[in-house]
Amino acid sequence: MQILKNRHVTGWLQAAPLTLILLGFLVLPIITIVIVSFWQATEFSIIPAFSFENYEFLFGSAVTWKVFMATFRYAFITWAFTLAIGFTVAYYLAFHIRSQPVQIALFLLCTIPFWTSNIIRMISWIPFLGRNGIANQTLISWGVVDQPVEWLLYSDFSVILAFVHLYTLFMVVPIFNTMMRIDRSLIEAAYDNGATAWQTLTHVILPLCKPGIMIGTIFVVTLVMGDFITVRFMSGSQRANVGRLISNDIALLQYPSAAATAVVLLCTVLITIAILLRFVDIRKEL
């Protein structure tokens, strides 16, 4: 029992469960993926090897570059929209609603859509946006358009719409959280010193919300970059992002090639996050 009294031993023991889980379910699979990415495959078997063929093909194909660019584009546009909407919603909740019960109630209201699955929320857009869907019928009956609008569904528009719908809450929550912790006297001080509402927003609230924005950004960017199902359904398989490249490869039994793409995607996302973290030191600010 003496040994358990040792501060270091208990510390290690307490950290052990999480460490083991992370090793077993995160580090090990990633190592496996990296190893397999150097293997080769035939139609029905994968062959252990050390070959750069998968990477050569990946970087040598114009499609890869195009698809990575498309992935970044989706991530950026989705980020911009979720940030604008998320910040506004959080601002309203944090500063306009005075009573705490109402605040909590409204916040919970935001989470209600999340009681259903991602896929259902996404697919429910399809009949709405379709050629003969509610949106087009409404537009036609109002006389806004004569012909059904085709680009509402199976287009970049529908993909981004679904992304924004699915992921805005991931922006709202962390931003709301940081806003609630802003000392209200700072805002009063800003007003007392003659700052306009806009100046208060840009010079006081926005800088203080940076950690929340950054956490939300990381959520949204990684979710969008890793997604494949939204792109597949909402574009009717007409568009591709990196996730779809990987899922196609897996479907066609090209595991090594899928692993290589996954490794490149993982690196890309890690680099993106590293760059984002240069802007805000989350640890310090939290």
């Binding site: 194909s61 499609v63 698809v67 591709a240 779809r244 490249l245 196609n248 090209q254």
Partner: peptide, 18 residues
């Protein structure tokens, strides 16, 4: 399923992404 199946599959992937 063709002899050039793997080549076709890669081309298919490109087609979907194009």
């Amino acid at each position: 399923v063709m002899d050039e199946n793997q080549y076709m599959v890669r081309k298919w992937n490109e087609f979907i992404a194009s």
